[in-house]
């Protein structure tokens, strides 16, 4: 498969009164055609800013300091605004977390859905409306033609998210960026939306970037996963390898913190002590070390690079950590055994 989207050394920072907030620090990843990449991390880890940087949908205080975003070899960071507009909603579709605020409450659904079709596809209004009605049916909203005349408040949260998905897929994008698309939804509706996106992806071959804080959702939808912390990618792996053989202490911590329907009960959850760091300085140490149970001296002095892990069960498994945590666990196990 060919590389569709190639992001190289992306850096985004925000100007604040005291200086800069370093939100994204040298993020690189590739996305193949038809691939689903999940980006996981807690609030403020830079996952959303990374994805907004791809299409430069950033607030004025933010600036992209370096990097390349190559979509089929063309650098999106070099495009002028007009060229970029053809990409946004055209080649790259987007869904956001809150379907409540992503739709204009004063304009009916039909007009909002027709807009990208008219702009990107040069359709007439009536063609665009007819296509929009089909799209609504495609995302599971029956009686599409009648519903085009309705306004966002007449749709439930799950239905609005379906409308957003229909809109983002309307111009047959090559990449769909979904920024926490199910976070605001109930669990039964979340399951519906996840199934819908999977179905659309398999049918259209769109590559999906799924941003979430919820590792359990990732297990069901992703091919590969990126874990972010403090604006860095700390681990990248195929989904099975990540869940079965996580190598970064932060990933391990996230998984331990997650109660599951199948897990033991009556046990304590393992926690990650402390809270995420301020991003006001670029660290010359591992940003996770203050919360890391495995931290050694080197972690306080040098920030590790994202490098292939030792004995990877699968290609493309990389982690940014000075410690081989399996070795530490083995030693701990041996020490416990010898006592």
């Amino acid at each position: 498969m060919s590389v569709l989207l190639d992001v190289q050394d992306l850096q985004t920072r925000f100007q604040v009164r005291k200086g800069f907030v370093y939100a994204v620090n040298g993020v690189s990843f590739q996305l193949d055609q038809g691939d689903t990449l999940a980006v996981v991390g807690e609030s403020g880890c830079g996952k959303s800013v990374t994805m907004l940087s791809l299409v430069r949908l950033l607030p004025p205080a933010a600036s992209i300091e370096s990097g390349q975003v190559l979509l089929r070899g063309e650098d999106l960071l070099q495009l002028n605004l007009r060229q970029l507009r053809d990409v946004r909603g055209g080649e790259i579709g987007m869904i956001f977390q809150d379907p409540m605020t992503s739709l204009n409450p004063f304009i009916n659904i039909g007009t909002q859905m027709a807009e990208p079709l008219i702009y990107h596809r040069g359709m007439s209004k009536s063609e665009a409306l007819a296509r929009s009605a089909e799209l609504l049916e495609m995302v599971g909203i029956p009686d599409g033609e009648a519903r085009l005349r309705e306004y966002p408040h007449q749709f439930s949260g799950g239905m609005r998210q379906r409308v957003m998905i229909a809109m983002s897929m309307s111009c047959e994008p090559a990449v769909l960026i979904a920024d926490e698309p199910t976070t605001a939804l109930d669990v039964t509706i979340q399951a519906q939306i996840v199934e819908l996106v999977k179905e659309l992806r398999d049918r259209s071959g769109v590559a999906v970037i799924w941003i979430t804080h919820d590792l359990s959702v990732v297990a069901g939808i992703a091919d590969r996963v990126i874990v972010m912390y403090a604006g860095y990618i700390v681990e990248e792996a195929p989904v099975d390898a990540l869940f079965e053989d996580p190598r970064h202490p932060y990933t391990v911590g996230l998984m331990g913190a997650l109660p599951s329907l199948a897990g033991e009960t009556g046990t304590r959850l393992t926690t990650i002590g402390g809270s995420p760091p301020d991003l006001v300085d670029l660290p010359d140490f591992c940003p996770f070390h203050p919360r890391c149970p495995y931290a050694i001296d080197r972690c306080r002095k040098e920030n590790p690079m994202l490098e292939p892990v030792i004995d990877a069960s699968d290609g493309g498994h990389r982690a940014a950590c000075w410690v081989d945590i399996r070795e530490v666990e083995l030693e701990a196990g041996a020490a416990a055994g010898s006592v």
């Binding site: 509706i189 399951a191 590792l215 297990a219 069901g220």
Partner: peptide, 23 residues
């Protein structure tokens, strides 16, 4: 219970996905 995603990719691929319809 069936709507809750399982944090295990292999199990998640195998389990039946019965999605409850409607709102």
């Amino acid at each position: 219970l069936l709507s809750v995603p399982v944090p295990n990719p292999r199990k998640e691929r195998q389990r039946e996905h019965i999605v409850i319809q409607g709102n």
